[in-house]
Simulated scan of single mutants.
Amino acid sequence: MGDISVFRILGSGPQAAARQAAALFTLAGALAVLEILNEPGNRHRLLIVAGCDFGTALLGLLVRWRRSSPALLGVLGFAVLGFSTWSFGGVATGTGPFLVLLYAWAALHFPRWILAAYVPPAAASYVTPLVLTHQPPVVVGSAFILMPVALAVAFLIEGHARHLREDRERLERIEQWRAAMIGTLAHDVRAPLTTIQMALEELRDQVPEPSVWMLDSALRQTARMTRLAEDLLDLHRIDSVGHLKLDRQVVAARPLVEEALSYVRSAPVTADVDDDLTIWVDPARFEQIIVNLVGNAVKYGRPPIVVRITEGRLEVRDHGPGIPDALRSSLFSQFAAGGPEGVGLGLWIVRQLAEAHGGRAVAEARSPGVAMVITFATP
């Protein structure tokens, strides 16, 4: 038994193709039933046509289709169209449009050779009932217009669909490479960092007091790099399972900001945070948000740089040239363009961490400069 959910009609692959065909035939059957209201005298014929449509739709839902086998549903569809035209005495009002629709469906899922192979059954389903019902030559000859048009439309759709599939497959390969790179980098970096940290801790106990601050600074940066490697692993897990687990705590905001700013010493940064303010966050990850935003402001903006925290809101403001409106909406995208007007992975990480905290990340224009604003949930 196949997947019989009629609501899952989008996608690609044989089962998606069968579901879409089932949706088309269900629509055709429903229209045949409604037509009874206009033509009650043809009730029995319309019910037979509707039964054929519904039966084909059910076949599409129930069978476990493989590779290009759902193309057989198109052949059945042509047969139903031919029967419908014959049973109504050669009236082909709905045959032409539905034949083109079947071709469009096939073009989304099957290669060109199948579209070409459809020509004989499609032409037969259109012409045969017209001949059997003794339609004039001009009506029969309409097939010489309909079939080339249907085939041309199908070839255009097939070419575009194939191009989109190739692009998607290429993006999937790039994404697999990126995920493997991040996971490998995070794993491979942690081991040497642990060794470096142990060596620095041993040296700290042996150096003269005036040099201790240098080792303390090196230890802080080593700890910072270790947390970044762990964060990369967490972000890798986001891609795999779709969420990031936080260790949220009620912490004092000002000491957290000052600790984060100790990693950024290349420009003056002011912390505008009340001494008694507490926030409910994951300290390590919220610190990473601050460091990334301040680092971005130092690199692309101009001082003064101000970090301001209020209830449920973090703002990092610089007084630089600002960011163009067209670029602000994409700043927090993954792998946004680098350079003087762009950023790389850092702000995408900020956005992921903001969303994990129940908030969002936006860039707001200021005069002068820009403010990176992070909202986060409060207890």
Rank of each mutant, 00 (worst) to 15 (best):
T184Y: 00
L193C: 02
Q176N: 07
R170M: 07
L151C: 06
H163T: 12
P137F: 13
I182Y: 03
H160Q: 15
R165L: 12
E158H: 12
P136L: 12
G159A: 14
D167K: 09
S142W: 07
V149Y: 11
I157C: 09
M147V: 15
V149W: 10
A150V: 11
L156D: 13
V140R: 05
I145V: 15
H163V: 11
M147Q: 11
E166R: 08
H163C: 09
Q176W: 01
A152R: 07
W177A: 12
P137A: 14
F144L: 15
Q176S: 02
P137Y: 10
W177D: 10
A154S: 09
D167N: 05
E175F: 03
L171R: 15
L185F: 03
A186K: 01
H160Y: 14
V189A: 00
T184Q: 04
A152S: 09
I145H: 11
R168W: 11
M181S: 08
V138G: 08
E175V: 06
R162A: 14
A180N: 05
I157L: 15
P148F: 04
M181P: 01
T195A: 01
E158P: 05
S142K: 10
V140Q: 08
G141S: 13
E169A: 09
E172I: 11
L151Y: 09
A152G: 12
A179W: 06
R190L: 06
L193R: 03
P136C: 08
A179T: 02
L171Y: 08
L146N: 05
P148Y: 05
P137W: 13
Q135R: 15
D167C: 02
E169H: 05
T195S: 04
I174Q: 11
E172C: 03
R170A: 14
I157W: 06
R162F: 10
I174S: 05
E172N: 10
R165E: 13
E169M: 06
E175P: 01
I145W: 15
A150I: 06
L146E: 10
E172Q: 14
L171P: 05
E175T: 08
F144E: 06
E175R: 10
A191V: 03
D167G: 00
R173C: 01
A143I: 01
E158I: 08
V189D: 02
Q135M: 15
T194P: 01
T184M: 01
